[in-house]
Design a protein around this nucleic acid. Structure first.
Lengths: 142, 142
DNA sequence: CTATATAATTGTATTATACAAATATTTTCC
DNA sequence: GGAAAATATTTGTATAATACAATTATATAG
């Protein structure tokens, strides 16, 4: 299957990724960086989890997530809950303060998206949202 | 303007970025990494350019691009052309070998996209390509 | 109960990045 | 025309996110 839109998706994804990673890698949006945002978002959405599960979800090394979670715990955005059935294991839950910065950050991000798409029709925004979701679901398991 | 699709775009973009950066940051696709791919792509598409212009295009620090370009020169994918009108300035042009690895890498990326969207209709691929392009154009100048 | 497996943390190295300093050259302007 | 300022690039240094390896503490298997 050749399809000129494959080529378009390839190029535009590359550009999108470059721009967004440049805008969010080093710099903070709100008071937290991208990895912190995703960690808080994951826990806020799916509940408390241990570093192993989080690392698996994010496809990061456990040690990486361990440090990220420890940093967020240090800042008071997460707290550690010992697993009652396994003395080695902990899960991280989000705090009130963590939820607050997550919401603030989400709002800032949504404002950026609103600004970027301010000349779009509602249908275009809807299509982009749905196609990105479909893309992410199509990728699952890869 | 509140729009539930803003929220959907926000979340799905975050997931997309996390997945793609994890898949391309550290690891190579083909024989070059993401930053090398973008640099070669830029030069192949728009012609020879100096580090200042490239850094501006990528919104990276000049020193960062200088090192990236030097690394690609070292590997034989780029070569340096002194600016005849300015003894301080150089531009980088892509070599045959650079073009070859760029094409190979692009093909690998397109194969991944083809695989990811194998159950999509042609119209969905077209819409995603066009909306990503529109997004990237909407972002210009931000 | 000992050996092995596992959850998490900590040590170490690498890499992409930014900012600052250095170098070489060009432009400005008196 | 020459000194001062500006500019293009490279190189030095620091930081942060990451992976892999080693360690620690606990659990499970045989």
């Amino acid at each position: 299957m050749y399809d000129k839109y494959l080529e378009m998706i390839e190029l535009e994804l590359a550009i999108l990724i470059r721009r967004i990673t440049n805008a969010t890698n080093r710099k903070l949006i709100g008071v937290i960086d991208r990895s912190a945002y995703l960690l808080l978002h994951q826990i806020a959405t799916y509940g408390a989890a241990g570093v192993k599960a989080l690392a698996s979800e994010f496809q990061l090394d456990i040690s990486t997530v361990s440090r990220q979670a420890a940093a967020l715990e240090q800042k008071g955005y997460l707290y550690k809950i010992p697993d009652p059935t396994d003395g080695r294991a902990y899960s991280f839950q989000i705090t009130e303060s963590g939820l607050k910065v997550l919401m603030e950050t989400k709002q800032i991000r949504m404002n950026i998206i609103e600004e970027t798409t301010k000349d779009w029709t509602p249908e275009e925004r809807e299509m982009l949202g749905k196609l990105l979701r479909k893309w992410n679901q199509s990728v699952i398991g890869k």
